[in-house]
Design a binder for these strands. Structure first.
Length: 366
DNA sequence: GTATGCTTTCGGC
DNA sequence: TTACGGCCGAAAGCATAC
């Protein structure tokens, strides 16, 4: 039986949530921004609605530049409210669970799902379910989304991309080659600029061309694991399954400093609250960590990190404080660059002894 | 040579 | 003219062990 896999993407999520909350925004360019607090307008655009995009404003753009693009266009410039979007997202994901066999949230505004068992591999049934899902989200949250259905994660994700904004794209197994073949390789999940330029050298620009490349050649150029993935993905045969309840693998906190500095102490002091926040995240997830990392982002926006791994998992606040302070010292000694932002990350997470993580509590493994 | 594990960097959203 | 977040997961790069 062919697999039936879906990918759902909430359209321009943060900005759409703001539009729903304040209907007077619709028709106007809307940008949802992260203000760093440095100067009045320093920070970047997190999400732009389609009206704002028409004028050239987009995510990742400095706020001041986006304002310039939107001058005279009556823009709404809104401060990002992560908690609010988190709440909406959680409600939607919880609602989705009852429509599908397995749900795998992928970030705040996306999810993969599996419908193989419940449809018996019937793509017509899957189409009806997908439409019901879209209607249900629109009814309960007044939000639109884009959905793709196909035989693998890569195909499903390409489908939802194609359907943007607001559409549904179903790619039944026998239509997969004609759907994939003309797609430019850089549209494939996992294929960035670096892979694209290597493929270009090999004379490969489309997924159809990729599917004809010899496996051995792809493995030689990209290594076994990624080479195999590229080969499989090019025909919609990438085999990753939809996995529910993925555990978090890291927690981090980054701040923009009050002023640029070369002094590691000065950076570290401004991270004190962030470190406590990470510690509380660990506690509420009942997780311990093995690796702690100091993150420096410099005035030229380049990044440097320094990390330390403990032999056994730890979870106490003082350990994070002391080890990250030491790592910032090392980082400071390793470069002449001037710090603009600083962060701390813990990774290598495991369940804290004698406690049960929230997801395990909700979905016991046995 | 291959597997494994750790550190650092990259890239998506 | 310039302008520039805060997360996350995973790849890349390297060292070591077998």
């Amino acid at each position: 039986m062919p697999r039936v896999i879906g990918h759902l993407d909430l359209d321009y999520f943060y900005a759409q949530v703001e539009e729903v909350e304040d209907p007077t925004l619709s028709g106007r360019p809307v940008i949802v921004c992260v203000f760093s607090g440095r100067t009045e307008d320093s920070g970047v655009v997190s999400t732009a609605n389609y009206r704002a995009r028409e004028f050239g404003a987009h995510s990742g753009m400095p706020i001041a530049l986006a304002r310039k693009k939107l001058e005279g266009k009556d823009p709404a410039v809104i401060r990002m409210d992560h908690q609010k979007y988190e709440g909406v997202s959680t409600r939607i994901m919880d609602g989705l669970e009852r429509w599908v066999d397995t749900l795998e949230p992928a970030g705040i505004d996306e999810a993969y799902f599996d419908l193989t068992a419940s449809t018996g591999g019937d793509y017509a049934i899957a189409t009806r379910i997908a439409n019901s899902i879209k209607e249900s989200i629109f009814k309960t949250e007044h939000l639109t989304c884009s959905v793709g259905i196909g035989r693998s994660k890569v195909v499903a994700k390409l489908g939802s991309d194609t359907a943007k904004p607001g559409g549904l794209k179903v790619i039944p197994p026998d239509a997969t080659p004609s759907f994939l073949d003309p797609v430019p390789v850089e549209k494939l999940y996992g294929v960035g600029p670096k892979t694209t330029s290597v493929l270009e050298e090999m004379g490969i620009r489309t997924v159809g061309q990729l599917s004809k490349a010899p496996l051995a050649e792809l493995e030689r150029r990209f290594g076994k694991k990624f080479g195999d993935f590229l080969s499989a993905a090019s025909t919609g045969n990438d085999s990753d399954s939809v996995v529910a309840n993925l555990e978090p693998t890291q927690f981090s906190r980054i701040v923009t400093l009050k002023r640029d500095t070369t002094d590691p102490h000065e950076a570290f002091e401004q991270l004190a609250g962030g470190i406590e926040y990470i510690h509380s995240k660990l506690a509420s997830a009942a997780k311990s960590f093995r690796t702690v990392t100091a993150i420096g982002i410099y005035t030229d926006l380049s990044t440097k990190t320094k990390s330390k791994t403990f032999e056994t998992p730890v979870d106490d606040l003082d350990t994070i404080r002391e080890s990250s302070a030491a790592l910032f010292e090392e980082l400071g000694g390793s470069t002449d660059k001037v710090l603009r932002r600083a962060g701390v990350r813990v990774s290598g997470l495991s369940d804290t002894e004698g406690q049960t993580s929230l997801s395990e509590f909700l979905h016991p493994v046995k």
